[in-house]
Design a binder for these strands. Structure first.
Lengths: 345, 345
DNA sequence: CTGAAAGCGCTTACAG
DNA sequence: CTGAAAGCGCTTACAG
């Protein structure tokens, strides 16, 4: 298990534009131009340079380029956690989108405490833009980023007072669709398990949900707090469901799928009730697991693809034009009917 | 939705070490030294510099530092997909480990085709090290990276002929434990659903599994190919299980949890059979969903924490000492007994 | 189209 | 301990 491999010669890629220039018998500037899209070089020069570059295995140093041009083509992506599948999926999509447009993702996992430290690091790396996914920066810090002129997009978060642009799905409409679906499904005691109280997703989903109920002249039967965690949701489910049948909900809207799975586990395994026989469950996000047959969860689709595309688009537009104007993109929400809730006749 | 925010002044953070030096009335070198751990600066100078830096909001430019020092403190992380939860989790852990040690993850999602393109980009960014997770580079490319002197660690992959170091769990032992568990559980027709034929994880898990069976004088009843995909696994399950009871397996080892969920869905929902009543299912990885009650999957733990720690350790050791010696770390595998397979008496 | 030169913001010998 | 100077590898006006 201990083959030695050649000691590395130095710490960096050895071949520079100067060396290519020497071999090609042109100036170093000429080499640079060949590797700068849009720069004017004669075909003959280009040919000589490309040949020399190939021989030497030359690759422009992205760091040097970033220094001199003031464009790192680096996008900081801040994430707090990846256990809710929605985030890895959107991270994958976003990363592919950005790569396709010549940018690269610099990943920052945020810790609960030290936001300052994270921002400091981000700014040190001279990123061209910032995307905040599950993470939320204090508005002070978001403002600090904005002040340095770096575009910021919050993905799946909207903060009215922040200068950052945002990309969300239509959480209000999604909540409304779910309420409508549940009422029309004949449910009479409809409850809500909330995510984090301070999150815009929870606020909007809940507001839309109540509005949807109100449109049918119905009010929510009960509410519990799950905080977007697995354990919090399980506890909320116990609170709501450990009662006599007439006293407990016959339908629950859980603020995201991740929590809904925990809720379903408690209801079926711990309480021995059936879904949707005893209680209907609906979630939000339509993460891949929602389609798994063991859950078969009725949910609202947030298209990670569309969210990633829109985020990349807004960010790059703001990077490449100097007009940094706050944008708030809201993507359509779509109901996905599966088997975890009674279906309207 | 269209608040204007101040136009960004320039493209980069405006304050440089020179400006701090001017304000603090010291040389630019002195400023640099204050921000270089271990450099010798008098307390008085340090004080003056820190004060000026705070006033101006100075942060050293990491790119400039990287250029001059030949250390970018950037680690390229190559991943092919994130839908198997094992990868996001290990990505999160690894990223935290590296951040804690002053490194940052530069994420590269690989596309099936253009490996060259990815390697080119990685090398352009002057990364100090490379981690390959679900991605596999052709051995040519791995060798090319190694030749430039950049340490490479393959995570959850082992390639004997590659100069790259590796971190895996003990897949052979894990397979063996599962075989032993299944045989002792009284199963008589034990089948295997394979991952990707060319992957080291599949090869080792399968080899260990057969060895474990052999130790009991048993041979595998059947085998199908799932290719580590959800759909492949579902199809493999149909192939194996759509037969008369005596002709089909009474236990299946599925090469990873991600596939096992698909297998369980097919068996229960499509075929109407019970687990473990009609057939026992065991998986490998112990991803979070394996503990979800709807699956309650007996599996083998790969500690993502330990794998991330070891990867960071090996990588950083190789970066910070010049001796680049191939290392192959194999972490212990542990059986986790849940309810998806009959338990030995 | 092309080359010489300046400069991005920093670290690090080198003298003192 | 400190400052002046060189230099990391590049892009980009500026002349020609």
């Amino acid at each position: 298990m201990h083959d030695t491999i050649p000691k590395r010669p130095g710490t960096r890629s050895p071949v520079t534009s100067g060396e290519v220039a020497r071999l090609a018998r042109v100036s170093q500037s000429a080499v640079s131009r060949v590797f700068t899209p849009g720069a004017s070089v004669s075909p003959a020069t280009r040919e000589k340079v490309m040949q020399a570059a190939t021989v030497l295995g030359y690759r422009p140093n992205a760091l040097a380029r970033a220094m001199i041009s003031g464009r790192s083509r680096l996008i900081a992506l801040l994430v707090a956690y990846l256990d809710n599948q929605f985030y890895p999926i959107v991270l994958e999509q976003l990363s592919r989108q950005l790569q396709g447009r010549g940018y690269q993702v610099l990943l920052f996992m945020t810790e609960p405490g030290d936001q300052d430290e994270v921002v400091r690091r981000i700014l040190q790396y001279q990123v061209d833009g910032i995307v905040m996914a599950s993470a939320t920066l204090s508005s002070d810090l978001a403002r600090e980023c904005a002040q340095t002129g770096i575009p910021v997009v919050t993905l799946n978060r909207y903060v009215a007072t922040s200068p950052a642009s945002s990309v969300t799905s239509d959480n209000i409409e999604g909540g409304r669709l779910l309420a409508d679906f549940l009422v029309r499904g004949g449910h009479e005691r409809i409850a809500f398990i909330a995510g984090a109280e301070d999150s815009s997703t929870n606020r909007d989903r809940e507001a839309g949900f109540y509005r949807g109920l109100a449109e049918h002249g119905v009010t929510a039967f009960d509410r519990a707090l799950g905080n977007y965690t697995f354990e919090g949701a399980a506890e909320a489910a116990r609170l709501l469901m450990k009662r006599k049948p007439a006293k407990r909900p016959d339908a629950i809207f859980v603020a995201n799928d991740h929590m809904a799975f925990a809720v379903m586990d408690v209801i079926r395994t711990e309480l021995g009730l059936s879904i949707p026989g005893d209680v209907s469950i609906v979630g939000f996000d339509d993460v891949p697991e929602a389609a798994w047959k063991a859950y078969d969860l009725t949910s609202v689709t947030q298209s990670s693809q569309a969210m990633a595309e829109t985020t990349a688009e807004i960010l790059i537009e703001q990077i490449e034009t100097s007009g940094v104007r706050k944008r708030a993109a809201v993507l359509p929400a779509k109901l996905v009917v599966r088997g975890s809730a009674k279906v309207p006749l």
